[in-house]
């Protein structure tokens, strides 16, 4: 339980310093609460482990692993989306810069011969 409370505090501090967005703060806060609650729900974990023919530590490890896997997949999805966004923004910046240069050249009286076909 102590570990869960400490983890929750770390999350709150990170969020206050704006190192975590609200979206991730909520997710990690839920994880912290789960860790804290797992101590209090010890008897439930034992009962469930018996039903599944597992030791309580095996059940907890399995649950932790599944949670971490889900978080990792979710972060991979986010990273993929961000990569796409960076790519699109970088391309748009390059296209805008080329257009500005072309307009500047046209404004300073450089021949139109270098300009591309307009759409």
């Amino acid at each position: 339980m102590l570990l869960g409370v400490l983890f929750a505090l770390v999350i709150v501090v990170l969020a206050r310093f704006q190192l975590l967005t609200l979206r991730y703060t909520l997710g990690w806060f839920l994880v912290a609460v789960s860790i804290a609650a797992s101590g209090a729900l010890n008897s439930v974990a034992k009962l469930l482990a018996n039903e599944l023919d597992l030791r309580p530590i095996e059940l907890l490890l399995g649950f932790s692993l599944a949670t971490l896997l889900l978080i990792t997949v979710q972060l991979s999805i986010t990273a993929s989306g961000l990569t796409q966004m960076v790519r699109t923004v970088t391309e748009s910046l390059a296209l805008s810069e080329e257009r500005i240069r072309r307009l500047e050249r046209a404004g300073s009286g450089v021949s139109d011969a270098e300009k591309p076909v307009s759409s």
Partner: peptide, 17 residues
Amino acid sequence: AVLPLVVNLGVGGALRC
């Protein structure tokens, strides 16, 4: 005409631009 990408996107990224 030059399209200056501020970061290296790789060949595919450059081509899409």
